[in-house]
């Protein structure tokens, strides 16, 4: 899986993170060696056997050197900070048109759910070189989805979504650990990311879809919930208004609220619209939407969100 000191760099971001790691390593190494060598030299040179305890000079300090060291160090740590932030920004920026996959952590396994309804346990299959966005949650306590070969991790939280985007650049199996302590079998909460050539990935999905036939994609389940749970009383699947706003094209766009502020419609906003509709009211509408807390399961909320996301303009 890896050599004694190095992990494979299996995602687009890995190399860059390793470079910063190496930079900090050398900065540290040089400062550390500087201090140790100075100490050892002083200990040797000014050992009691070579010096008179009553004749040491009375030195109270040296401000200039303190200031110079502070300034140099400050510049170095600001470089480390900026570099870290720039790469971090890349990590959290969702690429355009990613392949979206839902991940749910449970004590003590990982569930993967594809848009076509395919579910896997402790396994995540992704195509090589194609951006992937994981939409993750937990059904019990905190966990953390950690792929060392990608240098990426993100905690997953019950009743909330967190995201992790990456592009895999090395074929093969990459281990996934749960990195947030979650109880008895925390260390056995393992999974594998399998990275395939895009054509193989397509084939892998199509074969399954063919076998399934009956298997309904998430957004279709969502579409039927949209009708059966009564959303259609107040919403349309187009951009036409009823009592409430039309659902078409709202995802990933800004919506204006009654207080004049703007907010981007994402998974957490959609979830909140269902669970606590009164929390944020869309401008031009009355706060009449009932809460669906308790009436919709987490699963159903997820399906509805997939449906709304599919209603692009």
């Amino acid at each position: 899986m890896f050599t004694f000191f190095e992990l494979p760099k299996a995602s687009t971001i890995a190399a860059s993170i390793d470079h910063l790691y190496d930079f900090v390593y050398w900065v540290s190494f040089v400062s550390f060696v500087g201090i140790v060598v100075a100490c050892l030299y002083f200990i040797f040179r000014y050992h009691r056997s070579r010096s008179d305890p009553n004749k040491t000079p009375y030195i109270e300090g040296h401000h200039l050197s303190e200031i110079i060291i502070s300034i140099i160090l400050f510049i170095v740590v600001m470089i480390i900070f900026a570099w870290g932030w720039i790469d971090y920004k890349k990590i959290i920026t969702t690429p355009l048109k990613p392949l979206e996959i839902n991940i749910t952590g449970k004590q003590w396994l990982w569930e993967t759910e594809y848009q076509n309804g395919r579910r896997l346990t402790n396994e995540l299959v992704v195509p090589l070189g194609q951006p992937v966005k994981l939409v993750m949650t937990s059904s019990d306590v905190l966990h953390s989805f950690f792929i060392p070969n990608f240098r990426l991790k993100q905690d997953v939280i019950p009743n909330q979504y967190t995201f992790l985007s990456f592009t895999a650049i090395k074929r093969g199996d990459h281990p996934v650990f749960c990195a947030e302590y979650c109880g008895t079998a925390h260390s056995k909460m393992l999974a594998t990311v399998k990275v395939m050539e895009p054509v193989d990935y397509q084939k892998w999905q199509q074969e399954w879809e063919f076998k399934q036939r009956g298997g309904t994609p998430l957004e279709e389940v969502g579409a039927s919930l949209f009708a059966s749970k009564g959303c259609i009383a107040c919403h349309t699947a187009t951009d036409q208004k009823l009592v409430g706003p039309g659902m078409q094209g709202i995802y990933d766009h800004d919506v204006e609220l009654v207080d004049g502020s703007k907010i981007k419609v994402d998974e957490n906003y959609l979830r909140e619209s269902l669970m606590e509709p009164q929390a944020k009211i869309v401008k031009g509408f009355a706060p009449v939407m009932p809460t669906f807390k308790g009436t919709l399961t987490d699963q159903e909320v997820g399906d509805l969100i997939s449906y709304i996301k599919s209603l692009e303009k």
């Binding site: 790691y21 900090v24 900065v27 550390f32 570099w83 870290g84 971090y88 890349k90 990590i91």
Partner: peptide, 20 residues
């Protein structure tokens, strides 16, 4: 050593890997 290794963890991108 304890101090300088704190720098690795304070750097955001590196901490994403090293955290926990």
């Amino acid at each position: 050593i304890g101090g300088v290794t704190g720098l690795f963890l304070a750097a955001l991108s590196v901490d994403v890997h090293l955290h926990d």
